[in-house]
Each structure stands twice: as structure tokens, then as C-alpha cells.
Design a protein around this nucleic acid. Structure first.
Length: 213
DNA sequence: CGCCAGGGCCATA
DNA sequence: TATGGCCATGGC
């Protein structure tokens, strides 16, 4: 059993996910991915969709607009996604950073992982989600589901985020599209079957599961 | 009703 | 450097 076997099982069971989901109401489209990555921190995606819709309705649909938006208006729009004061500030800081490159296209071309991690409110998972799904960089996104799933399957637990990421990037040698698909499939697995409980019988990974945790 | 979500920061020890 | 508290709303 290796990492790619797990991928095959998930793909066969759930099919292609074609992440990241976007409403196409923001410009550029990739900016919506970045905004969603911030808004979904420890938050259900349904709530994120409400916040995105409010941002759009209130004229904040580009990094240009959000960078100069009134913080109170921003907070109001982002309320449904929770942690609304933090997230309004993070969204604004991020947008200002994007504009410091001259625009989103220049940002996308030149920004580094270290740049993103240096921003307040962008941790490794949020940064890597942006890098992979908005900027098309080949980085493996690690989240709580990823760790939990693979520890359950009997893989040895890594020390921290960076070690997990290097592990997966060494095991998965395929291209960026497969990286996108893999993380999406892990989230889909968690949504359907196994958030905090052990794998149930209907879970596609139950047969190969080594640990009942 | 209680649990928890596609985290991250900061204060303590 | 490692935990723990905190941020906050809405779905289920």
C-alpha cells in the first residue's frame, strides 16, 4: 500500500472533483480562489459561499476594490464565514499585498511561498491552497483530514506541516493537476465519511484501514 | 441542542 | 517548541 494506491481508490469512488469551486463573479477568477482560501479557515464551505456572495453584492469583487475597501463594510460582508474581524483584515492585507505587485497577474507570476507565509493570517495550508489552486504551482496541500486519513491507514505520522508536505511531494510524482485532484478527493472523503470518527464500513478506505482511530 | 468546520495567532511554561 | 485559548457563524 502506497500513497498513490489511496489516490486510485478515492478517484474510483468519488470521480474527478475539478477543484477549486468558484462562482465566476470575481475578477480575476483566481482571486476568488485566494479569497475563499482565507474565508474557509476552520469554516464550513457553505458559510464561505454566503460571505463571497455578500462581498460581490457590495462591490468588493477584485483585489483593487478590497485593498481600499472600508474595513467595516468588509467585516459586514464576511460575517457569515465566522471570525469576521480577523478575516476582513486578512482579506484586506492580502489584497493590498497583491496590488503591491501592480496587479494580480504580476502577483501570480512573481510571488513566492515565503512571501505568502510572511503575511499575517496566511499559514501554510492557506498559502499552499492559493499556490496550488490559484497559481498552479505544484505544492501538496496538507490539512487535518490528510494527516488523520493517512495516520489511520497506517502511515507513520510526520513531525510538522513541512515534513508532511515533503513526504507527499516525494511520494506523488505526478503533475499539478493530480495534486489538485488528490487534495480535493481527501476533503470529499472527509465530508462524506470520516471527519472525526473511524472509517465506517461504507467508506472506500475501510478495507485497507490499519487503525481504528 | 451540541458539535464542529477545507486554520492561524498569540500568550504562557 | 509545545500546548491551550481565542476568534464566531451557521449547517447538521
Amino acid at each position: 500500500m502506497n500513497v498513490m494506491n489511496v489516490y486510485e481508490i478515492l478517484l474510483n469512488h468519488f470521480g474527478h472533483q475539478c477543484w477549486w469551486p468558484v462562482s465566476h463573479k470575481f475578477r480575476p477568477r483566481e482571486f476568488e480562489v485566494c479569497a475563499g482560501a482565507i474565508l474557509t479557515q476552520n469554516t464550513n464551505w457553505k458559510n464561505v459561499e454566503k460571505a463571497l456572495e455578500l462581498l460581490y453584492k457590495n462591490g468588493m469583487r477584485t483585489p483593487e476594490k478590497i485593498a481600499v475597501a472600508d474595513i467595516k463594510k468588509l467585516e459586514e460582508a464576511v460575517v457569515p464565514s465566522g471570525f469576521y474581524r480577523q478575516k476582513a483584515q486578512r482579506l484586506k492585507n492580502f489584497s493590498m499585498f497583491v496590488m503591491s505587485f501592480g496587479g494580480f497577474a504580476e502577483f501570480a507570476k512573481d510571488v513566492t511561498r515565503q512571501d505568502l507565509l510572511s503575511l499575517s493570517g496566511l499559514g501554510p495550508e492557506t498559502a499552499d491552497s492559493m499556490l496550488l489552486y490559484a497559481l498552479g504551482r505544484r505544492v501538496f496541500v496538507i490539512d487535518a483530514y490528510t494527516k488523520r486519513t493517512f495516520v489511520r491507514l497506517g502511515f507513520r505520522a510526520c513531525e510538522g506541516y513541512e515534513e508532511w508536505r515533503r513526504f507527499f511531494e516525494a511520494e506523488v510524482t505526478e503533475d499539478v493537476d493530480l495534486y489538485k485532484e488528490f487534495h480535493a478527493l481527501i476533503v470529499e472523503l472527509a465530508k462524506n465519511f470520516c471527519r472525526t470518527k473511524p472509517f465506517c464500513r461504507k467508506c472506500p478506505l475501510n478495507k485497507i484501514c490499519a487503525k481504528k482511530i
